[in-house]
Structure formats: C-alpha cells, structure tokens
Computed example of a mutant assay.
Amino acid sequence: MTARILIVEDEALVAMELRFVLEDLGHQVVGTAADARTARNIVRETEVDLALVDIHLSDGPTGIELGRELGQEIGVTVLFMTANPGMVRNGVAGTIGVLSKPTDERAVQTAVDYALRRRTGEPVQYAPPQLQLFG
C-alpha cells in the first residue's frame, strides 16, 4: 500500500532519515515541514494520507494543534513522533497515537503500516508495541 506522507519535523537530519525510510518502503513523501505554517501550506497544495508530526517545531510546541487540525478538519491520518510523549498522554482528538523518539526503522515501518491499515478500514489485530494509541 503506497501512501502520500507528510513529515512535520524541525530537525533536518531526522526528517531526512524518515524520508529515506519511508521511500525505501515504497511511500511517496509529499514534503517535509519544519513548522506548522509550512505544513498547512503543503496540505493545501497536495493530497496527504498520513502525517508524521513532531510536537516541538521551529515555531514552538505547535505540533499538537496542527495534528488535531489535520486529523479532525482535513481528514489526514496523524501519528505523532516526539521525544516528549507525555505531552500527548491524554490523546489528541482526530489522531491515532504517538511513537516515542528516538526510534528505529522497524518501529516506523510497523507504526506507519498500522496507521495506513486503520485509515483504509482494514482489520488490524493490535498496534505495534512502540506505538502508544490514543483512546
């Protein structure tokens, strides 16, 4: 299953590594954004299936509100990726869950696969252990 994925991450090396992992898995990375405004512009201009969203971006801790907006208002499937998972411990409406950073290629692959299966309504037995699901 090929998906159009947006990476919202302010650390360029992390974003680049994620891009390589996702493209190796056969996905199309439609863009990377270091801040919420850039992410919104990309979503306005292109179709996005999944967004991997960090919480702390170059414009501050704007990822939580961005994730809620993308998930609830625009219909993008959202997974948070952050070193601060406690900031979203109680969940964020319209989003699936959080993957703690640092992470590895396998965890990204299984979390993305899980999120995309949920997006298309495919049955999913259980979430990958590294992915903390929201209620």
Rank of each mutant, 00 (worst) to 15 (best):
G60H: 00
L66K: 04
T82F: 02
R19S: 15
F80A: 07
T32Y: 01
E17R: 14
I74K: 01
Y114M: 08
L52I: 13
T103F: 13
L25Y: 08
T82S: 09
D10Q: 07
A3P: 10
A111G: 14
A12G: 08
V43S: 00
A83G: 15
V88Y: 09
G94M: 12
E69N: 00
Q132I: 14
S58K: 08
G26F: 09
P129E: 12
G135K: 06
G60I: 07
M16V: 02
V29M: 05
E122F: 14
M81R: 08
A51R: 06
G71N: 02
V88D: 07
T2C: 06
P128R: 02
A34G: 13
N41P: 00
T2I: 15
S58P: 05
T32H: 09
T120F: 14
A36E: 05
E69Q: 08
V53W: 01
G31M: 02
P129K: 07
E23L: 01
T46E: 07
A39T: 01
L22E: 11
L116I: 02
L99C: 14
E47P: 11
I5Y: 08
T103K: 08
E122T: 13
N84T: 14
A115R: 04
I5R: 07
T110W: 02
F80M: 09
V98N: 06
L133N: 05
E11F: 06
G86L: 10
L66E: 08
A83C: 13
L70Y: 04
M16G: 06
V30E: 12
A34L: 04
R4Q: 12
N41E: 14
D35R: 11
M87H: 13
L18F: 10
P102L: 09
E11H: 12
I42F: 02
D24R: 11
S100D: 14
R68V: 00
H27I: 01
I42Q: 05
L6N: 02
I74W: 04
G135Y: 09
